[in-house]
Design a protein around this nucleic acid. Structure first.
Lengths: 325, 325
DNA sequence: CTGTTAGCGCATTCAC
DNA sequence: GTGAATGCGCTAACAG
């Protein structure tokens, strides 16, 4: 900046004013801008935010697995909203490790991000409370906080599982198996709850032998499905808690040549081409990111030393789509 | 920091030293650390990097479409490497808009990122040259620069298309159609070149009526495939330049009940379950991100006022996988 | 071992 | 309109 000033024959102060369109005569302004171009000068945003006592104009996004399309689409949605407000997104991947999460969040706070969106790993989240983070606003996405209160954006896990299972039951299936993620995961628990509630609604009780609460990937889901469907008295339908599990189940059904109906959480591209009836719970992952970003922006815009409004929670709706037959 | 110093009864300088584990007596160190804990103090990394005349410890990643799993996995790979070096990733999505790209890159430079990985949109990339960016190192990923020289990581587009097409020809198909992205895209051009070269190798010339260089999404690809396969003299196989196009072609084949063989760029989860023979070009998208990050780190570690080593280019290998039949 | 001085690049405040 | 002084939060360099 000094160099630009020298070249334009003015003081650094004048250059600063030109760059923030302050009161400068048209003539000097042009001289300064010329010097800026000639020197390829760029104002240092880091020094600027320091001087202005402002946060960095970045928001942190901490996810558990960016390789999962759900989270990359969440990131895309958050990026859209951040972009509209001139904010940049700083990305961190925790691989479900609480320790990584803790370090990442600490680092983001030290870098003075305006706020953080986090898909929490693990169970206790006191270390993610805004209070533990020097007041940096935090929004939870996809999984709710435990041990602290905070703004949260969830998917309607319960409702989706309930609706999809109900669909199967309404189609006349009396026996619906369950393949899903472990109960320790919030989504796993909620989706199981939905599955169960749908049965109760119909006066049914799922049989324990049709339930597998563990598979996470295609091969393990396939094995579990083979086990269930190969038993003496197999169910006529299966509810799966995510699309990888649904694909595993599909492989099993196909291999056995069974007529088992499938329902699952998460839409996927080939669902209509499988050749067996598939019911799918569909929702907008980008919308999760957009809402989280908007909630965060609302917090950020609240004056920091103002009494904080209570934490809000919003649930992104799902829809049920039936493919095939 | 002053507050911490006051509380510990020392000067700010001592606090600073404690936090960077300098020469401080164990006793004062403990007093300081106690004060840090009590006040929940965090060192301001922004001010720190300013004072140390260092870049921000962040690298920028600018992609054209984070919703595309290829780019989100690229991001994941880059994040891994960045993480290992204690660097954060700042993400930007251009949606293929050159204007957005330009603004993003400018902003990243102004924020003093250590370097930038970019999947360039558009055709001319002079504005992405390290020179135009005040010397900030830049690595191109997935598409090469034009109008400037820079480190680049590519996928073996030509080789993959060549290998997959050759596979079809070797299987006895004399007539292989082409469904692919527009020639303006680097990948589109390269993959077409590979398709063509494989034919030449076999003494064949593809027929123009079997070629569609435009479809990008499933529905348009399906329509194009229906057109080709519905003609008087349809080819017995189709080469598709990405997995969305392959899926579109598959829909057409299935609808027509044809026995057309398919080959395509990009692996996908269901490829082995389609019920028709499918050859797929597979590659490691994360590896693209990892290599780009490593190249960038190499540049960053070069002293800035040293004669720069010439731009490097690396190509991530592909492998061909045959499913079905 | 610890404190003082000075300045990273910028912008607010107050002169002129 | 423009410039000089001052300080954002931190730390290298030099005292003591």
């Amino acid at each position: 900046m000094r160099d630009v000033a020298a070249r334009a024959g003015v003081s650094a102060m004048t250059v600063s004013r030109v760059l923030k369109d302050g009161q400068v005569s048209t003539e000097t302004k042009e001289r300064v801008l010329a010097a800026v171009r000639e020197l390829g000068y760029r104002r240092d945003e880091v020094a600027r935010t320091l001087r202005l006592r402002r946060p960095s104009g970045m928001i942190g996004l901490v996810v558990t697995n960016l390789g999962n399309p759900f989270y990359s689409r969440l990131a895309l949605g958050a990026e859209q909203v951040a972009e509209e407000h001139g904010l940049r997104l700083v990305l961190g991947n925790t691989a479900e490790q609480v320790q990584r999460e803790r370090e990442l969040v600490e680092d983001l706070v030290a870098r003075r991000v305006d706020g953080i969106i986090v898909v929490p790993a693990g169970a206790g989240h006191r270390h993610l409370g805004s209070a533990s983070l020097g007041g940096t606003p935090v929004v939870f996405a996809s999984r709710p906080p435990s041990g602290t209160e905070a703004d949260t954006v969830l998917v309607d896990d319960f409702g989706g599982a309930y609706a999809a299972t109900s669909q199967l039951l309404a189609q006349g299936h009396q026996t619906v198996g369950f393949l899903g993620n472990p109960p320790a995961l919030f989504t796993g628990a909620e989706r199981f709850r939905g599955y169960w509630a749908a049965h109760e609604e119909h006066g049914l009780t799922p049989r324990e032998t049709w339930i597998r609460r563990g598979p996470q990937e295609i091969p393990t889901a396939e094995a579990a499905a083979l086990e269930i469907l190969g038993s003496d008295d197999p169910p006529t339908a299966l509810f799966c808690t995510n699309n990888r599990i649904t694909l595993g189940a599909y492989r099993a059904v196909r291999r056995l040549g069974a007529a088992t109906a499938l329902a699952g959480f998460d839409d996927f591209e080939m669902a209509d081409l499988l050749g067996v009836p598939v019911t799918v719970v569909s929702y907008d992952a980008e919308e999760v990111g957009r809402r989280a970003a908007r909630m965060l922006l609302d917090r950020i815009e609240q004056a920091p030393n103002t009494p904080q409004s209570p934490p809000r929670r919003t649930v992104v709706p799902i829809s049920v789509v039936c493919y095939g037959t």
